[in-house]
């Protein structure tokens, strides 16, 4: 670069000194100080128990004493050869997959409905969100009453409609009980998934949809070839959260069936609670709960990936 300006006059010989910064100006220092308490709290009370959970699963610790002896893989061997555990593991998978499949269908449909405007939409939206905001245990107790063996309103309605001739013992029979759990989990999660999908839907530029319409795409083609692919990242977020909420939930099964009849409807959390807390065998309880880890790990990794890709995907 050529500069052909006249030479600048030298800066005045003795400038008045500008004051230097103090500790109050140091952004990184303040940032660290503000972050430290939260970080410490989470590390101490989530990080350490997390490690302790894994450690306990290799120990013979019981609730009664503070002894902590090395048990090696004995807890794992014990639970793996235990049919109740294997049933619980299977149930966890069935409930999670089943309910999330339902959630995807319901949430996609609900998002399509709730993006349109219709009279009473505000009220409908509030009602739709009730299941998500209500405490799990209270929802479960309401469903227990709905599924009651003598007074089930579902049975009455089915019978009144002429669809049912025998009798459904919803919570008294393993298959039906699992179905009930799946229904309740889907009922609880789908409103949440709906709002997330809805948020994704509004972030699809209107012009893309309009362009598709102009190009002659009808509702279904638009839905399956444009919206759903664009919504995939957001829907995945919803399903990942849903998976965690369902697979790690204790309340629904605990309140609805308590794991019965005959331990046939246990899921990992309820079994861990029964063995670890009620049965006071901390080691075995921890080992059962640890089986949730691979699932959480997969979810966490997928989340991180999505966090990186969604920005591009949705915009």
């Amino acid at each position: 670069m050529t500069r052909r300006e006249p030479a600048d006059p030298p800066a005045s010989a003795q400038p008045a000194l500008l004051a230097r910064g103090t500790l109050a100006d140091r952004g990184e220092l303040l940032g660290g100080l503000m972050l430290a308490p939260a970080l410490a709290y989470v590390a101490l009370l989530a990080g350490i128990p997390f490690l302790l959970a894994i450690a306990l699963s290799f120990s013979d610790a019981t609730a009664g004493s503070l002894r902590f002896g090395w048990a090696g893989l004995r807890n794992y061997a014990a639970i793996l050869s235990d049919p109740v555990f294997r049933r619980a593991l299977w149930n966890t998978i069935v409930v999670t997959v089943g309910s999330q499949a339902l959630v995807i269908v319901l949430a996609t449909a609900a998002a399509q409905v709730f993006r349109a405007s219709f009279p009473g939409k505000r009220v409908a939206r509030f009602v739709l969100l009730l299941p998500w905001a209500v405490p799990v245990s209270l929802a479960a107790i309401a469903w227990e009453w709905i599924f009651d063996s003598t007074f089930s309103v579902i049975n009455w309605t089915l019978k009144a409609a002429g669809l049912l001739h025998g009798w459904l013992y919803w919570l008294g029979e393993p298959t039906l009980a699992l179905l009930a759990v799946i229904i309740v989990q889907a009922w609880r999660i789908f409103p949440f998934a709906t709002v997330i999908v809805l948020a994704g839907l509004t972030s699809i530029p209107q012009e893309i949809l309009e362009a598709a319409t102009v190009d002659g795409a009808g509702f279904w083609r638009r839905l399956f070839q444009i919206e759903l692919p664009l919504l995939l990242p957001v829907t995945s977020v919803a399903v990942l959260f849903g998976t965690v909420y369902t697979a790690t939930d204790l309340g629904v099964v605990y309140v609805l069936t308590g794991g019965g009849p005959a331990n046939s409807t246990h899921v990992l959390p309820t079994l861990a609670f029964q063995r670890g807390i009620l049965g006071a065998d901390l080691g075995q309880g921890a080992a059962i709960a640890v089986f949730l880890l691979p699932l959480l790990l997969v979810v966490a990794i997928l989340m991180l990936r999505l966090a990186r890709h969604t920005e591009v995907g949705v915009r």
Binding site: L35, A38, L39, V42, A46, G47, P49, F50, L52, A53, L56, A61, A63, V244, T248, D249, L250, L268, P269, A272, F273, G276, I277, L282, G285, A286, A289, V290, L292, L293, L296, V299, A300, M303, L304, A307
Partner: peptide, 23 residues
């Protein structure tokens, strides 16, 4: 750090209640 903190939100109570009962 933000994402790391957020991920701890995913650690469920059902994994931690047993060590917590010890604590």
């Amino acid at each position: 750090l933000g994402i790391a903190i957020f991920l701890t939100y995913l650690i469920p109570p059902t994994l931690l209640f047993i060590p917590f009962s010890r604590l």
